[in-house]
Write a protein that binds this DNA or RNA. Structure first.
Length: 430
RNA sequence: GCGGUAGUGGCGAAGUGGUUAACGCACCGGAUUGUGGCUCCGGCACGCGUGGGUUCGAUUCCCACCUACCGCCCCA
C-alpha cells in the first residue's frame, strides 16, 4: 500500500458517519435545552495556551502534544483538549463583559490531537464534545453540567452508567493536602513502584490512582482529601451532593479520583460505563470539573468556570458494544431503470423531477442491463422503480413498479412530470 | 516512550523453500433480446504490509521499517 493514513488517525466511512451525525445531533439538541450555545475555536493554538493552562509538568504538555514551529517561527500546538482554547476565546473576545448574560454557556465538538500510542478508543486524532460554563460559582451549575452529561448519555441509549465525583477543594485545600500526602508517602518511598516514585514530587495526587497493587495497598491508608477541605470547599461539595440527590442522580464519591490537568479545583467528576465487551472495569466516556482559576491564568478577570469533555470514539465503542439502535435511514424512493442509450436524457429528467418534487431518486450510470438495474434497485431498497425503454419513449409512457408488491402499471410521462407528488407522494411518504 | 501479538483478494480465511496461492462471503457476467428471489455456469490476488538480505529459487527463512491490536505510562 503506497499511502496509509497517519498513525493513530481514522477514516470515518459513510456507514460509520451515520452514527457520528446522530450523536452530534442529539448532543446539539440536548445542549440547546440547557441553553448552551455553540462555539468554534481553532484546531491549533499558540503553545503557551496549553502549557499555561494544563500545567507545565502535566503529561499532556511534556510528552503528548503535537507541537511544531510554523514558517513564521511561531510555536504552534494542535489542541490536545478543548477547554483551553475556549477559555482563550472567552478572554480574547471579552465574553466576560457586563453585557453578556452570565453564566456564559458554550459547547463545542471537534477533533483533538495527542501524540501517544494508539489503542482502541484512543487515537492521535480523536474527537470530543465538550461544554464550558463561565461566570458562576453556584453548585447548581456544577449539578446542571453533570446532569446534562448524564442526560445526553441516557438519551443516546447508553446503559450501566456510573457517576463518580470528588472534590479537589480550593488552593488552600490542595496545598495542605499535597503536603499531608507527601508526608505520608515519604517514609514509604522505597516501597513505591518506580512510576510512583517519579510521581511523588511532581504530582503526588497521581500516586492515588496507581494501578500497581502494592501502591494501592499503601495508598489505602493514605489521608483523604476530604479531611483537608476548607469550610467553603466542604460546603460547596456537600451542596453538590445534596443537589444531585435531589435530582435523583445517583453517584459515588471516590476521594482518590484525580485529574490529569492542573487547572481543576472543587468538583470533579467522571461518567463511566461498564461493559464487558470493552475489557475489564469501567470506561470513562465523560469527564470534567470546575476550574475557577483558569480564566485568570489565561489573562482574563477572575471568573469561575466548569465543564466536561466527552470522548466520541469511546462513546461509539460503547454504543456498538451495547448495540444501541440508530434511527434507520430513509430508503430510496425511486430508482429509474433506462433501457437503451436513447433513454439516457429521459432517465436524467425523471430522477431530477422526482428530486425536485422532494423525494430521493437514483439511476444506473453504468449502462447495465435491466436485470442488473433491478438488482441494484432491490439492494438500495427502492420503493418504486420507473422503467423506460425505447417503446415507452415512443409512446411517451413509463412503467411504474411498486417493489414491495411487484405490481406494475403504465403511466403517462407527462403525468409524472406534472403531478408526481399528487400521484405518488402519499405512497412514498408512508 | 516501554513490553507483547499480528499483517495473504473488497471481507473472512487455508497454505507451501520450487511449475497455475485452496475455500467461503461479497461483487460482476451468463442461463432468462427488457424486470428484483432461488438454482446452475463462468469471472474476479502478475500477488501474500514495505524495503533489504540469505538462496539456483521466498509469500514461506533472516533483518529493518510501517501499521493495527493488547498491556504499561497517561487519558476522553
Amino acid at each position: 500500500m503506497k499511502y496509509q493514513r497517519p498513525k493513530g488517525t481514522a477514516d470515518i466511512l459513510p456507514e460509520e458517519a451515520v452514527a457520528w451525525s446522530y450523536i452530534e445531533d442529539i448532543a446539539k439538541k440536548t445542549f440547546a435545552k440547557y441553553r448552551f450555545e455553540e462555539i468554534r475555536t481553532p484546531m491549533f493554538e499558540n503553545f503557551e495556551v496549553f502549557s499555561r493552562s494544563a500545567g507545565d509538568t502535566s503529561d499532556i504538555v511534556t510528552k503528548e502534544m503535537y507541537d511544531f514551529e510554523d514558517k513564521g517561527g511561531r510555536h504552534i500546538t494542535l489542541r490536545p483538549e478543548g477547554t483551553a482554547g475556549v477559555v482563550r476565546a472567552f478572554v480574547e473576545n471579552k465574553l466576560y463583559g457586563p453585557e453578556q448574560i452570565k453564566p456564559v454557556k458554550l459547547y463545542y465538538m471537534g477533533p483533538m490531537f495527542r501524540y501517544e500510542r494508539p489503542q482502541s478508543g484512543r487515537l492521535r486524532e480523536f474527537h470530543q464534545i465538550g461544554v464550558e460554563a463561565f461566570g458562576s460559582e453556584s453548585p447548581n451549575l456544577d449539578v446542571e453540567v453533570i446532569a446534562m452529561g448524564m442526560h445526553l448519555l441516557n438519551r443516546l441509549g447508553i446503559k450501566h452508567l456510573k457517576l463518580v465525583i470528588n472534590t479537589l477543594g480550593d488552593q488552600e485545600t490542595r496545598s495542605a493536602y499535597r503536603k499531608a500526602l507527601i508526608d505520608y508517602l515519604e517514609p514509604h518511598f522505597e516501597e513505591l513502584s518506580e512510576d510512583s516514585k517519579e510521581r511523588l514530587h511532581r504530582n503526588p495526587l497521581r500516586v492515588l490512582d496507581s494501578k500497581d497493587k502494592n501502591d494501592q495497598k499503601l495508598v489505602a491508608d493514605a489521608p483523604s482529601i476530604l479531611d483537608y477541605l476548607t469550610p467553603e470547599s466542604k460546603t460547596h461539595f456537600e451542596t453538590v451532593k445534596t443537589l444531585l440527590s435531589d435530582l435523583d442522580v445517583h453517584y459515588e464519591v471516590d476521594a482518590s479520583m484525580v485529574r490529569g490537568l492542573d487547572y481543576y479545583n472543587h468538583t470533579i467528576f467522571e461518567i463511566m460505563a461498564n461493559d464487558k465487551s470493552l475489557g475489564e472495569g469501567d470506561v470513562t466516556v465523560c469527564a470534567g470539573g470546575r476550574y475557577n482559576g483558569l480564566v485568570e491564568e489565561l489573562g482574563g478577570p477572575q471568573t469561575p468556570g466548569i465543564g466536561f469533555g466527552l470522548g466520541v470514539e469511546r462513546l461509539l465503542l460503547l454504543m456498538q458494544a451495547q448495540k444501541v439502535a440508530l434511527p434507520v435511514q430513509n430508503a430510496l424512493d425511486v430508482y429509474v431503470v433506462g433501457i437503451g442509450d436513447q433513454t439516457k436524457a429521459e432517465t436524467l429528467k425523471l430522477v431530477e423531477t422526482v428530486r425536485q418534487a422532494g423525494f430521493s431518486a437514483d439511476q444506473d450510470y453504468l449502462n447495465r442491463k435491466p436485470k442488473a438495474q433491478f438488482k441494484t434497485a432491490n439492494r438500495l431498497n427502492a420503493k418504486i422503480v420507473i422503467t423506460i425503454g425505447n417503446d415507452e419513449l415512443e409512446k411517451q409512457v413509463v412503467n411504474l413498479k411498486v417493489m414491495a408488491t411487484g405490481e406494475e402499471q403504465q403511466v403517462k410521462l407527462e403525468d409524472v412530470y406534472q403531478n408526481f407528488p399528487a400521484l405518488f407522494g402519499e405512497f412514498l411518504k408512508r
